[in-house]
């Protein structure tokens, strides 16, 4: 994944970059399966590797597919900032619990209750679904509203008055619009 990410950072052809982003997402999905998050992997494979690639390609079709090279001093400055931030973050991870540690703080609070009681309280075996839709119903309602708002926003930004179901305007109409 790191190799792909470096390639994304280096390439200037945006078309290749978008394709690599799709591959990156797919690798991410594979990693989620290894880490037991099957629901998440499912979503990532469908969304990251599918829909967002299509949307980015759509954007490239509407704009341009070549990127200008960034000025050299800016790249060096960015590298310095990134390395410093990364060093701080790595220093921060030294306090984190080890990978897979069952005694980590995250596993002590509400998760045991969800795992232990949801079978009896909700009665469905997929704990992810029961948390998503029931225990955390408010959160999911909020997320649904966010998606709704995003779609409405895209419509507001790009969906300028063109009647429903009509395809491209005719050539004559476009010429009229240009005059």
């Amino acid at each position: 994944m790191i190799v792909v990410a470096v390639a994304i950072a280096r390439l200037h052809n945006l078309f290749a970059v978008v394709m690599l982003t799709g591959i990156f997402s797919l690798l991410g999905a594979a990693a989620y399966v290894v880490l037991d998050a099957v629901d998440v992997a499912f979503t990532e494979a469908a969304v990251g590797a599918g829909i967002s690639t299509v949307l980015m390609l759509g954007t490239l079709a509407l704009t341009t597919s070549e990127e200008r090279t960034a000025p050299r001093d800016r790249v060096i400055l960015a590298l310095v900032v990134v390395v410093l931030t990364g060093a701080v973050l790595v220093y921060g991870t030294l306090d984190m619990p080890f990978y897979g540690d069952p005694m980590a703080a995250i596993h002590q609070h509400v998760a045991p209750r969800y795992l232990g009681a949801s079978g009896a309280e909700i009665g469905i075996p997929n704990v992810v679904t029961s948390i998503l839709a029931s225990y955390r119903g408010y959160d999911t309602l909020g997320e649904t509203f966010v998606i709704f708002t995003a779609a409405a926003g895209v419509l507001a930004i790009l969906g300028r008055a063109r009647g429903p179901g009509t395809s491209k305007p005719t050539k004559a109409e476009r010429e009229d619009a240009e005059v």
Partner: peptide, 13 residues
């Protein structure tokens, strides 16, 4: 399962 739920919705959002 809790992080899974959070990330699941975060991906779609």
């Amino acid at each position: 399962p809790l992080p899974h739920v959070l990330i699941l919705t975060a991906i779609v959002v």
